[in-house]
């Protein structure tokens, strides 16, 4: 697994949200992307997933260009996004939400194994299996959103603000599980977060983004100690 983004420019309408972004993710890493509101973090994920294809620049996955592929082709390569705001299908049960995660897969026995693994990670989801997604609490919805992403059997999991709107205790729990998934499944994780402190604690590397550009790149421990990062994003 290797993802290379080379100088991409992406637009929302006439607004240039990414002004030449380059970054690289290698197998087994947890990499975080931190930055303020409107910096362009979500746009990077949407560009990778093919929903906001870059107008210029290239994205390569395992050496092959993917910036012109349709979203379903990108998912089938193993690049799966869990978007901001969880986006659970409210009319579907927990089980149906999970089934949709495996929409492109046909390997039934492996799907069953993955489902068991998810219920081990989040026993509450097994309990709420037949409840409709709309009735879950925020934390449970985030667990379901991550699990639905895992059901797609990702090589690279893109997580957008998984901590958003959750209680600190639940956030801790979810971040521990993100780390666990990375260790046990060897899934590469690209974590976009406003909660920079927590994100940098579980990440190997980090990128800092401002106004459509990557402004810093370093090991997570170095960023945690960096004065500029501290004052801007860690609230210290």
């Amino acid at each position: 697994m290797n993802l290379q983004i080379k100088d991409i420019h992406s637009y929302y309408g006439n607004i240039e949200a990414l002004k030449g972004v380059s970054l690289e993710l290698t197998a087994g890493e947890i990499v975080t992307l931190i930055g303020g509101n409107g910096a362009g973090k979500t746009t990077i994920l949407m560009s990778i997933s093919g929903l906001v294809p870059p107008k210029r620049g290239e994205i390569h996955f395992d050496g092959n260009p993917i910036h012109a592929l349709s979203p379903d082709k990108i998912v089938s390569l193993g690049i799966v996004q869990v978007p901001e705001g969880r986006r659970i299908f409210p009319d579907f049960s927990v089980q149906e939400n999970l089934d949709l995660g495996a929409y492109l897969r046909n390997d039934k026995p492996q799907i069953k194994t993955d489902l068991d693994y998810i219920f081990e990670l989040f026993p509450i989801l097994k309990e709420r299996r037949y409840q409709s997604g709309g009735t879950l609490s925020g934390g449970e919805q985030q667990m379901l959103a991550i699990s639905r992403g895992l059901m797609a059997n990702p090589k690279l999991l893109l997580l957008d603000e998984p901590s958003l709107g959750l209680a600190p205790l639940i956030i801790q729990q979810i971040f521990q599980i993100i780390k666990k998934i990375n260790q046990e499944q060897k899934t590469t994780i690209f974590l976009v977060e406003q909660n920079a402190n927590l994100a940098l604690q579980i990440a190997n590397r980090g990128y800092v983004m401002e106004n459509g550009l990557i402004t810093m790149e370093d090991k997570a421990t170095n960023l945690l100690g960096n004065e500029a990062v501290k004052s801007a994003y860690l609230g210290i």
């Binding site: 299908f89 009319d91 579907f92 149906e96 995660g101 929409y103 492109l104």
Partner: peptide
């Protein structure tokens, strides 16, 4: 299921590879 998911949230359906 794809139809029903699109009617609930088209962008999410895209992100799941539908």
């Amino acid at each position: 299921k794809a139809m029903r998911s699109i009617s609930q949230d088209r962008e999410m359906a895209l992100l799941l590879g539908i």
